[in-house]
Simulated scan of single mutants.
Amino acid sequence: MEYIYGALLLHAAGKEVDEEKLKKVLEDAGVTPDEARLKSLVSSLKDVNIEDVIKHAAAAPVAAAPSQAPAKKEEKKEEKKEEKPEANEEDAMAGLSSLFG
């Protein structure tokens, strides 16, 4: 991610995104740059209009956070389970005896 952030920082400053400048930004940020990653990113961004990408990314819909309503429903279900009366031992034995006649 640091490489992308560095490229975006260079773009925002109005500088050309090239290996030398990106390497300098990363080093100043305390990151040891990997030459292969630098070359790969710079070559990937060569034909990309960063302004258009930023505009389209900002317009992308964001998923809404789930509401708290489902959590309340779950609490109600748990309460209902707790409210059920437990079957006593005599009822259980009566049910078992009916199985065997």
Rank of each mutant, 00 (worst) to 15 (best):
36 A>G: 11
84 K>P: 04
29 A>S: 13
89 E>P: 05
24 K>C: 12
65 A>I: 12
87 A>I: 00
72 K>R: 06
74 E>N: 06
26 L>D: 06
73 K>P: 11
56 H>R: 08
56 H>D: 13
93 M>A: 09
57 A>V: 12
84 K>S: 07
25 V>F: 03
9 L>T: 06
92 A>V: 11
5 Y>M: 03
8 L>Y: 02
10 L>A: 03
45 L>V: 07
48 V>W: 10
36 A>S: 15
71 A>N: 08
12 A>N: 10
80 K>H: 10
98 S>R: 12
89 E>I: 10
75 E>Y: 01
89 E>H: 09
34 D>A: 02
96 L>T: 02
20 E>L: 15
30 G>Q: 09
48 V>E: 07
11 H>Q: 06
35 E>L: 14
61 P>Y: 13
79 E>C: 00
47 D>K: 08
81 K>Y: 08
1 M>K: 14
48 V>T: 13
57 A>T: 14
81 K>H: 10
69 A>K: 07
67 S>P: 07
78 E>D: 07
67 S>R: 01
43 S>R: 08
34 D>Q: 01
80 K>D: 15
78 E>T: 03
32 T>C: 13
12 A>V: 05
95 G>K: 05
101 G>I: 12
65 A>D: 11
86 E>C: 01
47 D>W: 03
73 K>R: 12
80 K>V: 04
53 V>F: 09
40 S>W: 00
93 M>K: 02
63 A>P: 06
37 R>W: 13
61 P>K: 15
36 A>R: 05
69 A>G: 10
79 E>Q: 13
23 K>M: 14
70 P>G: 04
55 K>R: 14
88 N>R: 07
61 P>M: 01
28 D>P: 07
77 K>Y: 09
38 L>T: 04
62 V>F: 13
76 K>C: 05
15 K>I: 11
36 A>Q: 09
28 D>Q: 15
98 S>W: 05
25 V>L: 12
68 Q>L: 03
30 G>V: 01
84 K>I: 01
68 Q>S: 04
37 R>I: 14
42 V>Y: 08
57 A>G: 01
83 E>S: 08
67 S>L: 07
64 A>M: 09
57 A>S: 15
69 A>N: 14
91 D>R: 01
35 E>D: 15
35 E>K: 02
8 L>H: 09
101 G>A: 06
72 K>P: 08
47 D>A: 06
6 G>S: 05
92 A>Y: 12
20 E>P: 10
70 P>T: 00
70 P>H: 03
71 A>H: 03
24 K>Y: 05
58 A>V: 06
91 D>I: 07
48 V>Y: 09
79 E>T: 03
19 E>H: 00
17 V>D: 00
71 A>Q: 05
66 P>G: 10
99 L>S: 01
50 I>D: 07
96 L>V: 08
3 Y>D: 08
92 A>F: 11
49 N>K: 01
87 A>P: 05
65 A>R: 11
74 E>P: 14
31 V>E: 03
65 A>C: 02
96 L>H: 04
27 E>M: 14
49 N>S: 09
4 I>W: 11
9 L>I: 12
49 N>G: 05
69 A>Y: 10
80 K>I: 13
97 S>P: 12
94 A>I: 08
99 L>N: 02
25 V>Q: 02
65 A>G: 04
9 L>A: 06
67 S>N: 05
52 D>A: 08
18 D>Y: 04
26 L>V: 09
18 D>E: 15
91 D>T: 11
1 M>W: 10
2 E>I: 06
98 S>F: 13
100 F>Q: 04
